[in-house]
Simulated assay, not measured.
Amino acid sequence: MAAENSRAEISSQSSSAGDNGSVDSGFVSPNSSTGNLPRIILTKAHLDHLNKQLESLHPVEILKFCKIFFPNLYQSTAFGLTGLVTLDMLSKIEKESPNPQPIELIFLDTLYHFQETYDLVERVKARYNVNIHIFKPADVNTTEEFEKLYGEKLWETSGELYDWIAKVEPLERAYSELKVAAVFTGRRRSQGGQRGQIGVIELDEERQIVKINPLVNWTFDQVKNYIKEHDVPYNVLLDRGYKSVGDWHSTVPVGEGEDERAGRWKGQNKTECGIHNKQSRYAKWLEQTARQRGQRVSAS
């Protein structure tokens, strides 16, 4: 029975129309929006076993294992230092492989990144032979179009709405359109905040995605030293006191002794932008917003 409970099952067949893709003990893909995904089941016992085995491995070994184990695998990145190290390691793995199968990237262009970040994306394209899938907020291509629809400084007037439009919805659209089953992320425990207890492999049960954190055990100095040693292109904002770079309107340099991500949403009770929070938080928020909008219409 124990062996049965810790079993991982991978099948190339899609679920039937009546299968809602839910398993109480673990993770299942597909669901209604990703019906063509391979079927992946990881029970909690198997997940614990995998994390125990992977915990002590070098990130390169984690990457090699996950490339074999997980289908429909992508790298989600905002081109932070950890993501760049992961990209460089994957590039080296591909060069050594007799049958290269490059991991493609997902980049969320919120339209409010620093110019230095956009410049970095171009340098990454020039350095690595990698396909980058760029997803922007729906129905807009520029900040001018965004602000025409939603007004200026939406991140101040309605932070939850901004997160949903600029980050959460584009990421979920990427998962659906690309039929993503698993993603590499750049999260590390040393970044602080909600990330202090994350494992190598996590299950986002609401979005039905496997999240893999290959450098989860590395410190900022280890990441920075790898960047320097291997001459990996990086965001020049690092040299100006930034350690974690997001949108220009919500990112500042980090002070001495502060957590690595202390410069994100400075002064706010917030450590994540939404893409690593539970989906239900936004589902509830959307429901509440729709209800309030309906009440205003009725009152008028």
Rank of each mutant, 00 (worst) to 15 (best):
M1R: 15
M1P: 04
A3G: 15
A8T: 06
E9H: 05
I10M: 07
S12P: 05
S12C: 04
S16G: 15
D19K: 05
G21A: 09
G21T: 08
S22R: 13
V23M: 11
S25V: 14
F27N: 05
S29G: 10
S29K: 08
P30A: 09
S32P: 00
G35L: 11
I41H: 04
I41N: 00
K44I: 09
A45T: 13
H49C: 02
L50A: 03
K52H: 13
L54A: 08
S56M: 04
S56C: 05
P59K: 12
P59F: 14
V60C: 11
I62A: 06
F65K: 05
C66H: 06
Q75I: 02
G80T: 09
T82N: 08
G83V: 13
G83W: 06
L84M: 13
L84P: 02
V85R: 13
T86Y: 02
L87K: 07
D88S: 02
L90K: 13
K92Q: 10
Q101T: 12
I106D: 00
T110F: 01
Y112Q: 08
F114Y: 11
Q115D: 15
E116N: 01
L120V: 02
V121R: 07
V121A: 10
R123A: 04
R123C: 02
V124T: 05
A126W: 00
Y128N: 09
N129I: 00
I134M: 10
F135Y: 15
P137N: 07
V140A: 07
N141S: 15
T143F: 03
L149V: 10
K153M: 13
L154W: 03
L154R: 01
T157M: 05
K167V: 14
A174V: 12
L178M: 09
K179A: 14
A181D: 07
A182Y: 09
V183W: 12
V183Y: 04
T185K: 15
R187M: 15
R195T: 11
R195G: 11
I198A: 13
I198Y: 14
I201N: 06
I201A: 09
I201S: 08
D204G: 14
D204F: 14
R207G: 10
K211I: 14
N213C: 12
N213P: 10
L215M: 14
N217Y: 08
W218N: 12
W218Q: 04
T219M: 10
T219Q: 08
T219V: 06
D221P: 00
Q222K: 12
Y226E: 09
D231L: 04
Y234A: 02
V236I: 13
L238K: 00
R240E: 14
V245G: 07
P253A: 06
V254Y: 02
G255K: 14
E256V: 12
E256H: 10
G257P: 06
G257W: 03
R261D: 12
R261S: 10
G263I: 03
W265D: 07
G267D: 05
N269E: 11
K270M: 08
E272P: 01
G274R: 11
K278E: 14
K278D: 13
Q279K: 15
Q279D: 06
R281H: 06
R281W: 02
R281A: 09
Y282K: 02
Y282V: 02
E287V: 00
Q288M: 01
T289M: 01
A290S: 05
Q292T: 00
Q292N: 04
R293Y: 03
G294C: 01
Q295Y: 01
S298E: 07
S300P: 00
